[in-house]
Design a protein around this nucleic acid. Structure first.
Length: 925
RNA sequence: GCGGAUGUGGUGAAAUUGGUAGACACGCCAGACUUAGGAUCUGGUGCCGAGAGGUGUGCGGGUUCGAGUCCCUCCAUCCGCACCA
């Protein structure tokens, strides 16, 4: 009987659906386990073999936990708002909702083919009003929250308002941008507009004018994590700095908690390090320098307060607000010229131009707080306006950038390090002893820092301070296909829409483009198009892509709830995600924002946990193997062996990998039919009359013509084969090139497994007592598989099945008990074939996934003898089979008495003999 | 520059606490059955060597009876950050 995988897989996909096999509900009698995949953005291209890699791993793990008796939540959905659908809409006029729906249908079809155990009744789509209603609701909670830094948590803004009414903001400990101080009476005297302007400076979600990354090509602002190497992540368009009124999220308030939380979660070091890097904590001091002949004080942040006596000048960012004021008339034209020059440069240019030292003297002087010396104030674009205070105290002997600046402009470089030569370069190591520094002389860095911070605090000119690189996240986008804000404007001030009016649905517009006067697309909507129209106007911005994905894992717990984002009882049952699998490209975007929102919801009392993802695994990328052909100056396509030494005048072209034979030769007729430019292509073939291409590893992508889709492979080999093969390729976290050739090995294995049940040409198993050798094989496999899954080593799991089936085949084993146990073990990897076999083994039972996972019993592996490998000086020479009951001395004696031992001893007496029981014998000569 | 990860056959890889390096597959070679094979089965396959044997986990050193595994130096590749004061 043949293994008819197509029929078997189709049958079980349908039966699982009919029987609701994967439907899951809260069950207090079972321990819960939550396995989550990063939900996909449904692009038009569909899935290639790289996409399901993580889904397969999580599916195996989810099924494994289920067989172990856990109540497993394993949902899937779509991150369906986003730029590609909108860009497509702009080009074609087709509503992005339609494109999105079509793409989702295609994704679903492909996902279904792979036989995943998702509970589809829990599907979410971030672009559905029933979902984004709650994204809007969460936004409202953020708007109505502020961060109390003494309680170290977010609180409802009403508490802050109450405090303002009691005592103003003088004693308020909150994270804010408010520079104004007021007492209760002043607060009460403020108009509603003034009050709201103040409150905006405290809210967790706030409207403020700030420097943003403006991308003209996309017509929207972008968050820092959406910019890669100075250009937009999507489309690679240039980005410029622009000051704009935008919604922001006060994520900076959570810097320390986001950092601290990393110690409590099981993520890879690489990922945690990326987040730590992004948050960028640095400890030091904030110091105020007085400006000579001025009331102004320049605040600087330094990580090396111990070097304060090495300060010989100050540098401000060209955009620093004081520059105009302190600048002397004599220097004004030079300073303004420099400011202009700096403003013209894009962020990217400034970064690329590190080697080019530039700056201008303002003519003003600051006063050194300890020496009283006058120190010149310069501006230079190596100082960033957006980091720290936008000003630095320059210590040329200890900082290379300051050193280079000083050398370039002939500024003094005082040396404050004992016995350190700074003739060639600054000394930035933190192991020096401080000298020429008054009361800091002779101290090391740590002691000097502590002492000087105390002195600074004493003088009232500063304090010890921790600085973070993390910036507040811009939360509005000038685009159409995103969540509308639950916000309208009254007297020019943002007001929240009442909960009863949610969701504010996305209004229809006549075009997905900005208006003539530059307003976002939503400004095109007519009054009637809005689900509600309040105040002077609705908010025209939409939320960024990360809004919906910051909390979707919560919605899966209760996806149809219309009264809350999720029922508290359900949230309490499912809690954190136990296992999250997804790509590492979300390290500083989605994963940081999701942690942030979780912490806010935790602080506000909606959640019982403050970290969303207890364990996270980044799956590696599956790379494609492109096919590269060479076209010579004569316009002929050359086979790889026919290329001359000098490839001058030759160009490389990538051709569709579907046009290749197994030996990397091109199917010439297919190539001619593929693209018109090859219709009359001539070739320089090799001796065998073939044109061989070069294979090169690239990202798997349509543009390299190297995409392999799961659909064809499912058709040809079956989903079970594809699932196992993807796991077999190597460790989940590692990137690896796809090679379809190897799939036959896994397919052959499944056939071999199938054959165990069909030794006599039909399905047949015996009910006899299993033989010891079969029990040994089985339990060895149980142990290996359990260990492998517990450490997420899916590739070695597949190998273990192969070894097991090979051994059982050799044993001619068709014992019911053994094969049944093996089938349960394998079911998470190859659900269709195992369910089919199970239905034959146990006709009438529900599903193999209601069985219990086999339990390892060490008894079956016990052996009386062991094949001791015998080494001489660490090199294995031969083996001796000995009784494990022998003492170490007896083993030594037995081994030395063997003729092989005599040969290797060459008549010498061993210096030492090491016997490790049940492991090894090593003889030292 | 800083940080992280990874270097093992022709290829994907395994070796979980220091104990037989290369399991399991692909590919390749030889053979069997076949009209045929992208089917199935058997044997072989790190490298050098006819063999005995030697040698071998990026390079060089160290610790150890014993190192792919631990320590030090260096090299290469990939990823992230990058004037962060």
């Amino acid at each position: 009987m043949d293994y008819t995988f197509n029929a078997i897989e189709a049958k079980w996909r349908q039966l699982w659906q009919e029987r609701n096999t994967y439907l899951v509900t809260e069950d207090p009698n079972k321990p819960k386990y939550y396995v989550l995949d990063m939900f996909p953005y449904p692009s038009g291209a569909g899935l290639h073999v790289g996409h399901p890699l993580g889904y397969i791993a999580s599916d195996i793990y989810a099924r494994y936990k289920r067989l172990q008796g856990f109540n497993v939540l394993h949902p899937m959905g779509y991150d369906s708002f986003g730029l590609p659908a909108e860009q497509y809409a702009i080009q074609t006029g087709q509503h992005p909702a339609i494109t999105t729906k079509e793409n989702i249908a295609r994704y679903r079809e492909q996902l279904d083919l792979m036989g995943f155990s998702f509970d589809w009744s829990r599907e979410v789509r971030t672009s559905e009003p029933s979902y984004y209603k709650w994204t809007q609701w969460i936004f409202k909670q953020l708007f109505n929250a502020y961060y109390d830094s003494s309680a170290n948590k977010a609180k409802n803004i009403s508490k802050l308002i109450a405090q303002f009414e009691q005592e103003g903001n003088i004693y308020v400990t909150a994270i804010h941008d408010c520079e104004q101080q007021f007492d209760a009476a002043t607060w009460k005297g403020f108009s509603a507009v003034q009050k709201e302007e103040i409150l905006q400076q405290y809210r967790m979600a706030y409207l403020a004018e700030s420097w943003v990354n403006w991308c003209p090509a996309l017509g929207t602002v972008l968050a820092n994590d959406e910019i890669v190497n100075g250009v937009s992540e999507r489309g690679g368009h240039p980005v410029e700095q622009k000051r704009m009124m935008q919604w922001s999220m006060r994520i900076k308030a959570y810097s320390e908690r986001l950092l601290e939380g990393l110690d409590r979660i099981d993520w890879s070091d690489a990922l945690k390090e990326q987040q730590r890097n992004w948050i960028g904590k640095s400890k030091g001091a904030s110091v105020h320098f007085e400006v000579k002949d001025s009331q102004l004080q320049i605040e600087v942040f330094t990580t090396r307060p111990d070097t304060i006596f090495g300060v010989s000048f100050m540098v401000l960012a060209p955009e620093h607000p004081f520059v105009g004021e302190i600048c002397t008339d004599a220097q004004r034209s030079a300073v303004e010229a420099y400011q202009q020059q700096a403003a013209l440069k894009t962020e990217r240019d400034r970064q690329a131009d590190v080697k080019n030292i530039s700056g201008a003297f303002t003519g003003a002087y600051a006063v050194h707080p300890f020496t009283g010396h006058e120190i010149p104030i310069w501006i230079g674009d190596y100082v960033l306006a957006s980091y720290g205070t936008g000003a630095v105290m320059a210590v040329p002997c200890g900082d290379q950038r300051d050193y280079d600046f000083a050398k370039h402009f002939g500024l003094p470089i005082p040396n404050i390090f004992a016995d350190i030569d700074i003739d060639e370069a600054a000394y930035a190591e933190k192991d020096a002893i401080i000298a020429n520094s008054d009361f800091l002389n002779g101290l090391d860095v740590k002691a000097a820092s502590e002492k000087v911070i105390a002195a600074i605090e004493n003088k009232g000119i500063g304090q010890g301070k921790t600085n973070y690189r993390l910036r507040d996240a811009v939360f509005s986008r000038q685009r159409y296909w995103g969540e509308p804000f639950p916000v309208y404007y009254q007297d020019g001030l943002p007001q929240l829409v009442d909960d009863e009016m949610l969701p504010i649905t996305l209004p229809e517009v006549d075009a997905y483009l900005p208006t003539a006067d530059g307003e976002p697309p939503l400004a095109r909507a007519s009054k009637e198009a809005w689900s509600c129209q309040l105040g002077e106007r609705m908010e025209y911005n939409t939320m960024p892509g990360w809004a919906g994905s910051s909390w979707y894992f919560l919605r899966y717990m209760d996806p149809h709830n219309d009264a809350a984002f999720a029922d508290p009882a359900k949230l309490a049952y499912w809690k954190q995600v136990d296992l999250y699998i997804g790509g590492s490209e979300h390290a500083t975007g989605h994963l940081l924002y999701a942690r942030f929102w979780t912490k806010v919801l935790f602080d506000l009392g909606y959640l019982e946990f403050d970290e969303p993802f207890a364990k996270l695994i980044n799956q590696g990328m599956i790379l494609g193997k492109s096919a590269i052909a060479y076209i010579g100056p004569d316009q002929k396509m050359y086979s790889l062996e026919m290329l001359p030494e000098q490839k001058e005048g030759f160009r490389e072209v990538r051709i569709l990998i579907d046009l290749l034979n197994d030996d990397d030769s091109i199917q010439l007729d297919a190539l001619k039919a593929w693209q018109p430019q090859y219709a009359n292509q001539e070739f320089v073939t090799n001796a065998a009359g073939k044109v061989i291409v070069k294979r090169e590893v690239d990202k798997m992508s349509k543009r390299w013509y190297n995409v392999v889709t799961p659909d064809d492979l499912c058709q040809k080999f079956g989903a079970d084969t594809l699932r196992m093969y993807e796991m077999f390729l190597g460790p989940l976290e590692q990137s690896k090139p796809w090679d379809t050739k190897g799939i036959t090995g896994v397919h052959g294995f499944l056939k071999k497994y199938w054959r165990l049940f069909h030794l006599g040409g039909h399905f047949e198993v015996t009910d006899q007592e299993p033989r010891p050798e079969a029990l040994k094989t089985l339990h060895k496999t149980i142990k290996k598989l359990t260990d492998d899954l517990d450490r997420f080593s899916f590739n070695t799991g597949v190998s273990s099945f192969m070894i097991c089936v090979n051994e059982l085949t050799d044993q001619k084993c068709n014992n019911r008990y053994i094969l049944e146990q093996l089938t349960i073990l394998m079911a998470p990897y190859a659900p269709h074939i195992c369910e089919e076999i199970w239905s034959q083994l146990r006709p009438g039972t529900s599903s193999i996934f209601d069985a219990s996972y086999p339990v390892f019993d060490a008894r079956y592996l016990q052996e009386a003898n062991f094949d001791y490998p015998v080494s001489f000086n660490g090199k294995m020479r031969f083996k001796v089979n000995l009784d494990l009951a022998l003492s170490l001395a007896e083993v030594e004696q037995e081994v030395l008495s063997k003729p092989e031992a005599q040969k290797w001893l060459e008549g010498k007496t061993p210096k030492k003999v090491i016997v490790v029981h049940g492991k090894i014998v090593n003889i030292v000569l």
